[in-house]
């Protein structure tokens, strides 16, 4: 087992190097550099600036310099955010995205499973239609509609929560509901199907025939089987949630990873972009 893990880890090294190389050259191909601004500085100063970051060398020399540092674990300084190391920026933003992702996952699983199971117990009744209609609505409503709606209701009209920011525990509620709500809708549909399938199995009929209470049938016998499709879904959902959602972070002004990813590319902040791509690739 240890050998297997070790081998897999070794295999990731060349993959990461290839990814870093590709990202580096893609960024170099994009027109415009990190120091192009609407207000041009004097050509002399621009030259000094490029000399400082080694941008006056050939692309291959720049690539060589970058890779040598990278192998030593140094992602370099951000071009845009002078004075910040790329590792420092990621170390600051990732815990935020991770925290939001965890809450959102909790929301998605709890609400999703409860709704799905309730719906599965009495198919084609009101307790099925209501949660499933909500789920359809949840899938149809993208986060950029859901977020502002929640803010309008709970932030502005009722004044229970702050409309944006990341200061207090209460600031986690609305973003977690927005991000989690979307996946809760998916989860509920899958949980419903899973539960209905299990409930139609022979061993459930046997359990009922033996006189087990409905409560016991569901939680003791059906539950384990019913959550299996949900568990399968959880892995990709978790991955996409903890890596930060640009839209949710933007709506709620959350200092997470998503915002960096988009702005770094726009700023042609090469070191930050490669750093982020490698970080995502490693996970």
């Amino acid at each position: 087992m240890l050998r297997f893990i070790f081998r897999r880890l070794l295999q990731t090294i060349p993959v990461l190097l290839i990814i870093a190389t590709m990202t580096f050259f893609l960024m170099k191909l994009a027109p415009g550099g990190p120091f192009d601004t609407e207000k041009a500085t004097t050509p002399e100063i621009k030259k000094q600036l490029e000399a400082h970051y080694g941008l006056d060398k050939s692309v291959w020399a720049q690539y060589g310099d970058y890779m040598i540092k990278l192998v030593q674990g140094d992602l370099g300084p951000s071009f845009k955010y002078a004075g910040w190391e790329v590792t420092e920026l990621i170390a600051g933003a990732f815990p935020v995205s991770l925290e939001l992702g965890c809450y959102a996952l909790a929301v998605a699983l709890t609400i999703g499973m409860i709704m799905g199971f309730v719906a599965a117990l009495r198919p084609n009744s009101a307790t099925d239609y209501v949660p499933m209609s909500l789920a359809t609505l949840g899938i149809c409503l993208p986060t950029f509609v859901m977020g502002p709606l929640l803010i309008l209701l709970f932030g502005i009209t009722l004044g229970w929560f702050n409309s944006s920011g990341w200061f207090f525990m209460s600031d986690r509620v609305l973003p977690a509901l927005t991000l989690g709500g979307y996946y809760a809708a998916y989860t509920s549909r899958i949980a419903r199907t899973g539960m209905m399938e299990i409930l139609s199995q022979d061993f459930i009929r046997t359990a009922r025939a033996k006189g087990a209470s409905e409560w016991r049938v569901i939680f003791k016998h059906a539950f384990k089987g019913a959550i299996q499709p949900v568990v399968t879904l959880t892995a990709p959902v978790t991955a996409s949630m903890v890596t930060g959602s640009f839209i949710v972070e933007k709506i709620f002004d959350i200092p997470g990873m998503g915002r960096f990813f988009v702005t770094a590319a726009f700023n042609r902040d090469l070191t930050l972009v490669v750093g982020l791509v490698l970080f995502y690739a490693t996970r």
Partner: peptide, 18 residues
């Protein structure tokens, strides 16, 4: 000094008294 980039988020924060 907040660094809210989205003008909509900015306006909502204002409207909710933040």
């Amino acid at each position: 000094f907040y660094s809210i980039e989205s003008t909509d988020t900015d306006e909502r924060a204002f409207r909710s008294g933040q």
